[in-house]
Design a protein around this nucleic acid. Structure first.
Length: 457
RNA sequence: GUGGGCGUAGCUCAGCUGGUAGAGCGCCGCGUUGUGGUCGCGGAUGUCGCGGGUUCAAGUCCCGUCGUUCACCCCA
C-alpha cells in the first residue's frame, strides 16, 4: 500500500498531542465525578427516527449500511449520533425505570456530522456533556449547577486560554418581545435567529433584516437591539439594565429571576481567566431550548465560535405520560484541543509515558533489566527497557528523542553478589547517582508527561 | 453543495521564457567499539498526488481526476 492520505475532518493526533487531549479528558472526568455526575456511554448508532426527531437534518447524518445491504431503502435505518443529547434523551426513556431522578450524568464520546470541515469543525469529534434530568420537574438551581460544574472543569485546564461563559434566558427574550407586541411563534423565532447573528454581522445588517424581511417597524427593531446590547456581570446591574428598557411582562420577569439566579451562583468562580456574563444577545438557533442558554468564548480564539454550549429543555424527553425536563452543557473537546495543538506549540514534554529507560548492556542481561524495570513499576514508576543493546550513548539518545528524563544503568548481574551499584542519570542535567530500584522515585513532576505551551506560533 | 488557493525528500519549502530534481531542518554513520547533546567529516533520501494531452524534451504548459485547505451555505 502506498502512503495513505489524511482524511479531512477526521483528526488524528501524535502521541505527545494525544497526551494533551488525554489530560483534558482525565480532568473533565475527575471534575464531573467530583460533582457527583455518573458516567454513561451510549451506543454509537441510533434509529433514524430518533435522530431526526428534531427536524430535517438528514443530510448531516451518516447512515449505517451493510456492504451487502438488500433492504428497500438500501440502509439499515440506523445512523451515527451527531450529538450526545439526543441519544441521552432516548437512554433516559429506555431506562427510566432503573434511574433515580434527578439523574445527573456525564458522557464523553465521539460524534459524527457530515459537514464540510473547517478549523475547529470536524466530521468526527469528541464532545463532553453533562446533563441533569428530572421526572416531571427540575428545579432551576440546576441550571446554575451545570454551569458551575463546567466552569470548574475548564478552569482547571490551566494550559487553555481564559474564557467567558455567556448566559441568557429564552424567557427573557420571549417575554420582552411579547411586551413589545411581537407575538406568534414563527415571528419570534425569526427575530431571534437574526439577533443570534449579532456576533458575526454588524448591527446595521441585523437591523436591516429586522425592519426589512422580518417586517418590524423601526422603533420595535431598535428596542429588540437594545435588549441584545445588554451585558452584565452582576445581578443588580442586569436587573437595572433590563428594567431601564421599560418593558414589563410576566414571562420576562420569570426569566430575569432565573438569569439572576445563574449569574449569582457563578459569581464565586470568576477570576482572571474565567468570566461569567449575562449576554442578552445569545439566543442559540435551536428552538428546543426553553429557558437558560449558554455559550462560551475562548479568549484570543473568538473565531472558533462557541466552544461550550447548552441550555434548558422543558421537554428533553417524553413518553407521552411523563415529561423529563433537563438542563445540560456540552464542551467541544476536539473543537478546542485540535486547533490549539495546531496553532500553538502545545504538547506534552514527552511522547511516551515512560519516566525511565532501563539501559541494556547486552542481550544476555535482558532478564536482569526486565527485573529492574519491574521493581520500578511495582512502585508506579512508568518505565521501559531499551529495545536493543546499543552502546550507551545511543541508548541515551533513544531516551532523549522520546523525552524520557531518566536512564537507569543496572548493576551487573553478579553470580556472587553485586559488587557495583545501580546508577540513574538525569539526562537533562547529566547528573548521575547511585540508586536502589526498590526505593528510588523521580520527582513528582517527572512521573507523568507534562503539558507545556511552547512558543506561540 | 458553490467558489478560490495549494499538492516536489520524514518536515518546511525553492525550482526562472519547458532543457540532467534542490536547500534548510531532521535522519543514519564515523571521529568517540559502555554515557547522548556541541563540533567536524561523510551518507541516504523522491511514483515531483494520479491519469491523459501538447512537445525532440514536462516538476514547469493544457485537460481531467483525486486529495487537501480557506471562504460561503449550514450548524444539533
Amino acid at each position: 500500500m502506498s502512503k495513505p492520505t489524511p482524511l479531512s475532518g477526521f483528526p488524528e493526533l501524535l502521541p505527545a498531542q494525544r497526551a494533551v487531549e488525554q489530560q483534558v479528558l482525565d480532568t473533565l472526568r475527575h471534575v464531573f465525578e467530583l460533582h457527583g455526575f455518573a458516567g454513561v456511554e451510549t451506543r454509537a448508532v441510533e434509529p433514524l427516527d430518533v435522530l431526526l426527531r428534531k427536524g430535517d437534518t438528514a443530510k448531516e447524518v451518516y447512515l449505517l449500511r451493510r456492504l451487502h445491504e438488500t433492504s428497500a431503502d438500501g440502509h439499515a435505518g440506523l445512523g451515527l449520533h451527531f450529538d450526545l443529547t439526543v441519544p441521552f434523551a432516548r437512554y433516559v426513556l429506555e431506562h427510566a425505570g432503573h434511574l433515580e431522578f434527578p439523574f445527573r450524568r456525564y458522557q464523553v464520546q465521539k460524534v459524527w456530522r457530515g459537514e464540510r470541515p473547517q478549523e475547529g469543525r470536524f466530521r468526527e469529534f469528541t464532545q463532553a456533556d453533562i446533563d441533569i434530568v428530572g421526572r416531571g420537574e427540575l428545579g432551576t438551581h440546576h441550571d446554575a449547577e451545570v454551569a458551575r460544574v463546567m466552569v470548574d472543569a475548564l478552569r482547571r485546564l490551566d494550559f487553555l486560554p481564559g474564557f467567558t461563559l455567556q448566559v441568557n434566558n429564552r424567557k427573557v427574550i420571549a417575554g420582552y418581545y411579547a411586551g413589545l407586541g411581537i407575538t406568534g411563534g414563527e415571528l419570534v423565532d425569526e427575530v431571534m435567529r437574526q439577533v443570534d447573528k449579532l456576533d458575526k454581522l454588524p448591527v446595521e445588517s441585523v437591523r436591516g433584516e429586522l425592519v426589512g424581511p422580518v417586517g418590524l417597524d423601526d422603533a420595535t427593531a431598535e428596542r429588540v437591539l437594545a435588549l441584545a446590547a445588554v451585558r452584565a456581570t452582576d445581578a443588580a446591574a442586569l436587573e437595572a439594565d433590563v428594567r431601564a428598557l421599560g418593558v414589563t411582562d410576566p414571562l420576562l420577569e420569570e426569566g430575569l429571576a432565573e438569569l439572576v439566579g445563574v449569574l449569582g451562583a457563578c459569581a464565586g468562580l470568576v477570576d482572571d481567566r474565567v468570566s461569567v456574563v449575562a449576554d442578552l444577545s445569545v439566543a442559540r438557533g435551536l428552538d428546543y431550548y426553553t429557558g437558560t442558554v449558554f455559550e462560551t468564548r475562548l479568549r484570543g480564539w473568538e473565531s472558533l465560535g462557541s466552544i461550550c454550549s447548552g441550555g434548558r429543555y422543558d421537554a428533553l424527553a417524553t413518553d407521552g405520560r411523563t415529561t423529563y425536563p433537563g438542563v445540560g452543557i456540552s464542551f467541544g473537546v476536539s473543537r478546542v484541543v485540535v486547533p490549539l495543538l495546531a496553532r500553538t506549540g502545545l504538547a506534552a514534554d514527552r511522547a511516551v509515558p515512560s519516566a525511565v529507560l532501563v539501559a541494556l548492556p547486552d542481550e544476555a542481561s535482558r532478564a536482569h533489566a526486565d527485573a529492574v524495570a519491574d521493581r520500578l513499576r511495582a512502585r508506579d514508576v512508568p518505565c521501559e527497557v531499551a529495545a536493543t543493546p546499543q552502546r550507551f550513548g545511543k541508548q541515551i539518545r533513544y531516551a532523549e528523542r522520546r523525552g524520557i528524563p531518566y536512564v537507569w544503568f543496572p548493576a551487573p548481574a553478579g553470580t556472587d553478589g553485586e559488587t557495583t551499584e545501580h546508577e540513574v542519570k538525569d539526562i537533562r542535567s547529566g547528573e548521575q547517582v547511585t540508586a536502589d530500584p526498590d526505593t528510588w522515585t523521580p520527582p513528582t513532576e517527572d512521573l507523568r508527561p507534562r503539558v507545556q505551551a511552547k512558543e506561540q506560533q
